[in-house]
Amino acid sequence: MYEKIFEKYSPKKDNLIYILHDIQDQHPQHYISEDAVSEVSEYLRIPFSHIYGVLTFYTMYSTKPRGKNVIRLCESPPCFLKGSENVLRKLKKTLDVKINQTTKDGLFTLELCACLGVCGNAPVMMINDDVYGNLNDEKIDKIINKIRGEK
């Protein structure tokens, strides 16, 4: 199932992080399943437990299915100073989810993350690969409604 990805990388352990990124990016639910870990383990000839250890160490990876759009809100001090707590409250309310939960329609997963390096526009969040800055209630409504409209 992952041959295309494996073709890109030689079977060396130092390619593990790349491979995991690709597997996760390709999955519509942005996660890495147990089956995938098994296949990677066979391809790289390294233990399942090692891969699982790596997978759960880094915050960008998920072992659980996520929504179509993964929202990662920065909670580091610069964004905190600029009101990330309010943004979090607003997102929870708008999406009707708690942190690390996925909306019932499977469209959004709400996560927190560390500094994204876009602090000049704090508070910021990333939705999949896109960064949204200078957030306030109004902007969040706009962004969420736009994505909801696209589905």
């Binding site: 352990k13 130092d14 992080i17 995991l20 990124h21 390294i46 790596v54 880094y58 915050t59």
Partner: peptide, 19 residues
């Protein structure tokens, strides 16, 4: 893949090696 500690040089090396 998202870990602050990887800014520490030896942790960064571990991460490069796929750990």
């Amino acid at each position: 893949a998202g870990a602050y500690v990887c800014g520490e040089e030896t942790a960064l090396i571990e991460s490069m090696e796929g750990n």
